[in-house]
Amino acid sequence: MEENVDQKRQLWLTRVEPYEGESISHFLGRFRREKGNKFSAPSGLGDVAGLGAVLARWEKFYFNPFPTHQELEALATLVEVEADRLREMLPPPGVGMKHSPIRLCCRCYAESPCHQIEWQFKVTVGCASHKLRLLSKCPVCEKPFPIPALWVEGHCPRCFTPFAEMAKYQKHY
């Protein structure tokens, strides 16, 4: 562990502040891309954290086995975010996850540009805040949304429609 901390000091990683309700996938993608961090793949960040390929699974919402406190502590040391805060980016105990499709409330995204962990819960049918059904693909070109770790600019990767503009296509429930 001490070796990893020394490695971090040598890397001069830039801290990224988590958004409220943000999913671990979205946070890890933002952290990897932050100026000064520049990890092209989750495996690079996982190697520096001493976690190996586990971060690639977390970015795709695969939490079996569930992240241990030790794993969260190792990541917390590297990204300078408390382990308990990282734990909030994961599903609560007993809540199943939808690995695909990736789902999005565009109104929420317009208010806070991040993927919310609750959108991927199996029990979630829509956005509780806006009473809107979640989108699982671009309503303009119908391309499914990529994993949130890959959301760089907040728009469809095929037709470039901004996520916030897609809100007009969401239906009430």
Rank of each mutant, 00 (worst) to 15 (best):
N4T: 14
N4S: 11
V5S: 07
D6N: 10
D6M: 10
Q7Y: 08
Q7A: 11
Q7L: 13
R9D: 12
L11F: 10
L11G: 01
W12P: 00
L13F: 10
L13C: 07
T14V: 14
R15G: 00
E17I: 09
E17Q: 08
P18T: 12
Y19G: 00
E20C: 00
E20Q: 09
G21W: 14
E22L: 02
E22C: 01
S23N: 06
S25R: 06
L28W: 08
R30T: 05
R30G: 02
R33W: 10
K35G: 00
G36L: 04
F39I: 10
A41L: 04
A41E: 10
S43D: 15
L45W: 14
V48K: 03
V48P: 02
L51H: 08
L51A: 05
G52C: 04
L55V: 10
L55I: 10
L55M: 08
A56C: 01
W58K: 03
W58M: 05
E59R: 00
E59C: 09
K60E: 15
K60M: 11
K60C: 07
K60I: 08
F61L: 05
Y62S: 03
Y62I: 13
F63I: 09
P65Y: 08
P65E: 12
P65R: 01
H69V: 15
H69E: 15
L72S: 06
L75W: 14
T77I: 11
V79R: 06
E80P: 00
E80M: 04
V81P: 03
E82C: 00
E82K: 04
A83R: 02
E88F: 02
L90A: 04
P92W: 08
G94L: 04
G94R: 05
V95C: 01
G96F: 10
M97G: 01
K98Y: 12
H99L: 11
L104K: 02
L104P: 01
C106T: 10
R107D: 13
Y109F: 15
S112A: 13
P113G: 03
H115Y: 13
E118A: 04
W119R: 00
W119I: 12
Q120S: 09
K122T: 15
V123F: 05
T124C: 07
V125M: 04
V125W: 07
C127A: 05
C127Q: 11
A128C: 03
A128L: 13
H130C: 02
K131V: 07
K131F: 08
K131M: 02
R133G: 07
L134T: 05
L134K: 02
L134A: 03
S136H: 12
S136Y: 09
S136P: 01
K137Y: 07
K137C: 07
C138Y: 09
C138N: 03
P139G: 02
V140T: 12
K143C: 04
K143Y: 12
P144I: 11
P144C: 01
F145L: 09
I147V: 15
A149D: 13
E153Y: 07
G154F: 11
P157F: 13
P157C: 06
R158L: 13
C159N: 10
F160Y: 13
F160V: 07
T161C: 04
T161N: 03
P162E: 14
A167C: 05
K168L: 06
K168H: 03
Y169G: 00
Q170R: 03
K171V: 15
K171I: 13
H172S: 13
Y173Q: 11
